[in-house]
Design a protein around this nucleic acid. Structure first.
Lengths: 320, 320
DNA sequence: TATAGTCATAGAGGATTATCTATGGTGTAA
DNA sequence: TTACACCATAGATAATCCTCTATGACTATA
């Protein structure tokens, strides 16, 4: 058999001829003329190298080989159909895979979005990558993920960012800290306190450093700890103060409390970041849509909802 | 997905690209140029409507959709391959089906050919139709079978017949018949005996009738019985004499014996009969080849072997 | 035995495909 | 950085395919 020349079209036509038992009927059903169908059959016979139909009492009936061919056709066509359905589902975003890269702090919030999404879309497989800002930037450079969450989006051309959720940075101290009820508390008063800081690659650290710099303040004592969670525990045990995302504290606030420092909370927002040139997997698109709806319902973040909507609109116009 | 335009060739090329991870390598393996393969991929992508490969560190790797497509390709190609193998086997005659129509007497001999053949070709499915001459002629007219065995082939144009086995018709009487040892026994002596005859549609009857007519003899008493077996039993129980194929008697000779009548045995031969315009199934062809060999080995019928060889040769030249 | 329906074949057009050579871009590795 | 390997694109050509109309052959039914 000359497999190379075999076409799915031929199989489709052939299968219909076998079903209807008539060349003319198939021609009508498929909006072709009768000679066209005849010729398709002829070509298929040449490909197979063997007669596949013959006429019996005015009906077109498959030969023995033809029957085997018919079964093959049905088999192949239905499998192709399954794939086609998979494709549709994939394009609808209800199936498939995407990966999302998170900066550390975002891991305290994103599960609240990813959880419901996965529940609603069990066929979607999400890979979550977590690291500090610098690590995520590296992944971003290498195009390793489909979607990123940054506090400060990399300022590159062809990058789109949607600030979807506020990420207030607050100063925290241990429970019953002596600064807790001080009025008009300023950084000046705290500069002799020991501050527990994230490592330099971290976004939280970066933001705080920038603020300190612009305020012209230099800290006396600092200690570097690479995990928000470790910092929270250290603060609780009285090792010092720290600047953390309010979400980190809100998540399990035991042993620490927010201090009412002037100028705080520092405002920052998490951004969804995507590359313009990279085609976003439909599942990721669907996730963004999901987030948009969820923001309004659960997070009361109308601005974020708008930003995501805008992002989706841009993605829409870019992919066709 | 545009299934209509999908080709097996495209899938073959694509599958090879995925396996090798290189367009150039595939081009070499398939004896194509690199741009050709590139374009095939492009076309396949257009058919699928989705990117199917991308480049990662110099290698061509399938996307998520591409992986699903690869699996599909493997699946479809291997199934097609199975069909292709079936086709080969079918053409070799080692697989498939044919039907053979036998006149009654032949059923005493043909099992000795069909049995070994089926044993040697377990994948071949044979339908055996049995009837008297007239019934077989009807089937023959309607093209109902692939192959026939007649004593007297229908004299039609486009019919080929190969006399493959002698079918001597003998006169039989009961064991210890008083005619058994008579010298120079003639029909004249027997014309008062009762003869048990097959029905008029039967070939045996027809041959005997013709012989009687040419010999100018008319029988006194006859009785018609539609089965060779029943006739044999009736003869054994002394109801009369009969003309039967020697094969019928040889098969289980109890209670009857051949009478040494002058002019007997009447010579006749069984013929394989096929229509010229009908393409013989390869399995039937293989059966004829088998018979040819078997005739020499087991039946000592060199003439038959030659006739079958001649038939096969003609069939060979007619089908290409 | 007409007649209507069904299929095969011939001929022709335009569209699509398969394949090539030549060339340019891009990323990898020395 | 340079060189090389690899892939994409453009342009061209011959083959093939798809589809049509026209027509002839066969078959079953009225």
């Amino acid at each position: 058999m000359k497999v190379r020349q075999l076409t799915f079209r031929l199989l489709q036509v052939y299968a219909d001829v076998v079903r209807t038992g008539s060349i003319t009927a198939t021609a009508n059903r498929l909006h072709l003329t009768q000679p066209t169908v005849s010729q398709q059959l002829k070509r298929l016979r040449e490909i197979v190298g063997e007669p596949i139909v013959r006429q019996v009492e005015g009906r077109v009936v498959p030969t023995e080989v033809g029957q085997a061919l018919y079964q093959l056709s049905q088999d192949l066509l239905s499998r192709t159909d399954v794939f086609s359905q998979y494709l549709d589902e994939y394009n609808r975003g209800g199936r498939g895979h995407f990966s999302i890269g998170l900066v550390n702090t975002a891991q305290y919030v994103l599960p609240r979005l990813l959880g419901p999404f996965s529940q609603a879309n069990p066929q979607v497989d999400v890979t979550v990558e977590i690291g500090n800002r610098q690590q995520m930037l590296n992944r971003f450079e290498r195009h390793e993920d489909d979607l990123y969450v940054f506090s400060h989006p990399p300022s590159e051309a062809n990058v789109m960012a949607a600030p979807f959720l506020s990420n207030p940075l607050v100063v925290v101290g241990p429970e019953n800290s002596r600064w807790a009820n001080v009025k008009d508390l300023t950084m000046e008063s705290l500069k002799d306190e020991r501050f527990l800081l994230r490592e330099p690659g971290s976004a939280t650290r970066h933001t705080f450093d920038a603020w300190l710099y612009s305020a012209g303040i230099e800290l006396r004592a600092t200690q570097q700890i690479a995990s928000n969670e470790a910092i929270r525990l250290a603060v609780a045990s009285g090792m010092g103060l720290a600047v953390l995302s309010r979400h980190v504290v809100a998540d399990s606030p035991k042993g620490v409390q927010e201090l009412p420092l002037q100028g705080f909370p520092l405002k920052s927002r998490w951004h969804f970041v995507v590359r313009r040139e990279r085609r976003l997997p439909p599942a990721a698109y669907r996730f963004l849509s999901f987030v948009q709806a969820w923001l309004a319902l659960e997070f009361n973040e109308p601005e974020g909802e708008l930003a995501v909507a805008e992002l989706l609109r841009t993605l829409d116009t870019e992919r066709r």
